[in-house]
Amino acid sequence: MSITAPPEKPAAKGSAHDTPSHGPLRVLRGIPHTGLFAVLIVVVTVATLETDSFASSTNLVNILRQVSVVAVIAAGLTLLMTAGGMDFSMGGTAAVVTAVAAQLLASGTSPTVTVVLSMLLATAIGLVNGAVVTFTNVAPFVATLASATLLDGVALLVLDGHSVSIGTHLSTLGNESTLGLPNLLIAAVLVMAVTAVAMKFTVFGRDAFAIGGNEHVARLSGINVAWHKMALYGLTGALAGLAGLMLLSRLGASSPGTGGLTLQLTAVAAVVIGGTSLAGGHGTVIGTVLGVVLLGVVANALNLLQVSSYFQQISVGGVLLVAAVANQLHRSSRR
């Protein structure tokens, strides 16, 4: 005697258990950097309501000009951190380049020769950092933090404790505009755009993601990890040199304390706020851009509200801490 079980009825279409929720919150969560956009909108709204000059075209252009230097450093950091690296010496490299270039220009060296020598020096510094990290297995944080301290001291030695003016040299880059946009901003946008294209559409960029995700697996898959690390650190050095020249052109002089660790921490904060993983394997240029703009807007708003500059450093540190914690929580939830 056989017993045939009745066929199972298909689940009702559109049941509560099988159909995912498509509410507005789920849609918003699917949009990249939604929280960052929301925070930026809130900050801009508050600054506009509290100060009359914040929303003026002159002030907005000034914000974009100020954040351009940080944006160039942050672009290099985004690519490097995606590959699991870190370079805390980029601000120090910018300080050394600013000091050396100022001394060269003040002594009569042509701007072209000065720019070439400064970029070569910055690239060499990056390659030295890359060699130390790659071939000695010293943690990138330790190696580059030591380099940052060393470079800050070198910058002071080059300047001998004095401010060195460059006159009108490099003023085209630092103070003039093209089609109504500051040349500094145009340079920063070009660097960001090239970095974004390299990360998304080139083998070099994809290899960086692979190395950041799992360096051992990347090596077994045939990627020359040592060469990529050297290239990445050389590139971050070159971008730090460019940032130093941009900073010098905007200020018109190099002084003790120009660039250095403060500039570096601002760039790191922008990259982490933008969602680039501290452990490597994930990062976007769009997020970095939003982080750079957010920090620039906050600093500008605090200035307009006549808040002490000490609180500006506190705000950067606080935002960096919150972003790092949120980054780690997001990584854990994805796992």
Rank of each mutant, 00 (worst) to 15 (best):
A301T: 01
V132K: 02
V113L: 11
F135L: 10
T78W: 06
T284A: 15
L145A: 13
F311R: 03
A301G: 09
G205W: 02
L232G: 05
G130H: 04
L159M: 09
L127I: 14
T202I: 03
Y310T: 12
G108W: 10
G180N: 03
N327E: 13
T258P: 00
A238P: 09
A11N: 10
L239D: 07
G213Y: 01
F201T: 05
G275Y: 11
A240E: 08
K229V: 05
L247I: 03
M192T: 00
E176Y: 10
G85H: 14
Q312A: 11
S221L: 15
A270W: 02
L232D: 03
S254L: 03
A155S: 15
A279N: 14
L235C: 01
M192Y: 04
Y233G: 09
A323E: 12
A75H: 07
T195N: 07
S332P: 00
S249M: 05
A253F: 13
V271W: 07
T4L: 13
G213N: 04
V289P: 04
G318M: 07
L329C: 08
T4H: 14
V325I: 12
G280F: 00
I166L: 10
L121K: 09
A74R: 05
N137P: 01
A99Q: 02
V61H: 01
L80I: 12
S68C: 04
T45I: 12
G174F: 02
V39W: 11
T114V: 04
I3V: 14
S249R: 04
I31N: 01
G234H: 02
S177M: 10
L79S: 13
S107H: 04
G234C: 02
